[in-house]
Design a protein around this nucleic acid. Structure first.
Lengths: 113, 113
DNA sequence: CGTCTATACTTAGACAACGTATGCATAGAT
DNA sequence: ATCTATGCATACGTTGTCTAAGTATAGACG
């Protein structure tokens, strides 16, 4: 999903999807486009990662879906956060902050050498 | 390697190892302990991840190793950065910065909603 | 009307990497 | 003599991402 190191995405895809849905229901394709635009093309979620992730998250009760019609008159599956999804978003956000801070500490400590 | 979401490590293990070795040669166990301490226990690199990663990175020419004796009189395998490893460290560091910045943008954009 | 393109969802299979668990070895302490 | 901490190695299972292929259809364009 990212150019330089595709492995880096692991574990953040769900955070990104949850975050995207914070602003209201969206369909899969729309989620991917929003992430791409918002990250200035840095984050590219492939379909083979996106849809399985959505199914997984729905299975876990973080998301709910329903079929609908998009602005451009297309059949789309709209996903929305459940309350469990909202809680998960919270903890994932905290987890990311802690993780990023930890990496930051390590990088800084090594710089000091 | 991290508590909340073990998947988040993916792709950063090599960055972390390269970073640790920036300050000079170290052995595997020492790398893990340094990372743990420097990150205030946030980052815990398991042996089953650490050693395969070291072998992988040596195979790719980013590291060199030689057997030696540690301060506490133990046989250890000391790893050091090669020039290719140093270059890789540079690009991984940049990759991380870009990635973290992208995530930051997304989180911020969603907050604004 | 037919074709092309962009949108939209799905899923099988390959691949990579992390963790669990286990095994081995040994220095120093008790 | 035994125990603990240190130190390295690796088989195996799990997980998640990507590639690739397939299906479907709206709208543009001729």
């Amino acid at each position: 999903m990212v150019q330089r190191n595709p492995e880096m995405l692991r574990g953040t895809v769900e955070l990104l999807i949850l975050t995207t849905l914070r602003g209201g229901p969206r369909h899969g394709f729309g989620i991917a486009r929003w992430l791409e635009q918002t990250s200035d093309d840095e984050l590219q979620l492939e379909e083979g990662s996106l849809y399985p992730a959505l199914h997984r998250m729905e299975r876990r009760g973080w998301l709910e879906s329903e079929w609908g019609i998009s602005d451009n008159n297309r059949k789309v599956k709209l996903y929305r956060l459940t309350s469990r999804g909202r809680a998960r978003l919270q903890s994932e956000t905290e987890g990311w902050a802690a993780f990023a801070a930890a990496i930051g500490k390590v990088l800084q400590a090594a710089e000091a050498v």
